[in-house]
């Protein structure tokens, strides 16, 4: 299992690193988000921002949210890559060897998580270039990184499980939209909870993306000590999503 997981993960990473477009995406997407969206509230008075965001710059508030969104949406590449492998017949090649289905899925999820994590330093660096001042708490930072890895695999698992049996290229994009859009807008990734009506607050309070984002804000925006409860919540979500995906993949994954 480990040897096969290693082989398939290596394959994902090699293919990832050799794609120029992937690098373009990793670099260009954060830049566009930060420059265009990150500045969308820059005209508001600093006092207002500090009152509602706890920090005087929207960009600095938003960056951890953007990291969360990116890690979540890159999970889609796990399911896309699996659909692609089925289409190209590669899944037959793998499943005609003694490779467990779990290794096939975990390699995809880890590959997508890797891709998401590669974006994190880019986002933070672009933020720094544009004048974001980070207040870093090392313990929170460590916990955040762990949470990002867990969430990366968890979200990839969620998406992959939902498209485990299709060879339709459109499926991952569509499924992705049904999950990522609501999760993004009902979390505190982009706006603080105080802005929301009651029902939206209720959703954001159970949304894993909220917890992932707040862990990031503790780590680099506010520099506050880690929130163990948030981490446990997120870890539980990721573990449940991954476990469910493993069960579904074992049952439903077929070569074509």
């Amino acid at each position: 299992m480990i040897a096969q997981l290693y082989a398939l993960y290596k394959r994902e990473v090699l293919k990832l690193f050799r794609s120029r477009y992937m690098w373009l995406m990793i670099i260009a997407q954060p830049v566009m988000w930060i420059i265009f969206f990150g500045n969308s509230l820059a005209g508001l008075p600093s006092a207002f921002l500090t009152q509602f965001l706890g920090v005087g710059s929207y960009l600095s508030y938003m960056l951890p949210g953007m990291v969360s969104i990116t890690v979540m949406t890159t999970g889609m590449f796990s399911s896309m890559s699996l659909v692609f492998d089925r289409r190209m017949g590669y899944l037959k090649r793998v499943l005609a060897t003694p490779t467990p289905k779990a290794a096939v899925f975990l390699a995809k999820a880890l590959g997508a998580a890797t891709r998401g994590l590669l974006t994190v330093p880019v986002i933070l660096a672009v933020g720094a270039l544009l004048g974001v001042h980070y207040s870093i708490n090392p313990a929170s930072l460590l916990l955040w990184v762990a949470a990002l890895v867990a969430a990366g695999v968890g979200f990839a698992g969620l998406f992959t499980a939902l498209t485990v049996n299709t060879s339709d290229f459109h499926a991952p994009g569509v499924v992705n939209n049904f999950i990522t859009m609501p999760l993004m807008f009902t979390s505190t990734a982009l706006f603080p909870r105080q802005f929301f009506p009651e029902w939206l607050r209720a959703i954001s309070a159970v949304n894993p993306l909220t917890y992932l984002t707040e862990l990031g804000r503790d780590a680099v925006t506010y520099g506050t000590p880690p929130d163990a409860t948030a981490f446990i919540y997120l870890a539980a979500f990721s573990a449940a999503a991954t476990a469910a995906a493993l069960v579904i993949v074992e049952r439903l994954l077929t070569a074509d």
Binding site: A3, Q4, Y6, A7, L8, K10, L14, R93, T97, P98
Partner: peptide
């Protein structure tokens, strides 16, 4: 690399 991955899948 293709051979490596195939070999590892077969242990």
């Amino acid at each position: 690399e293709n051979l490596e991955i195939q070999a590892r899948l077969h242990g």
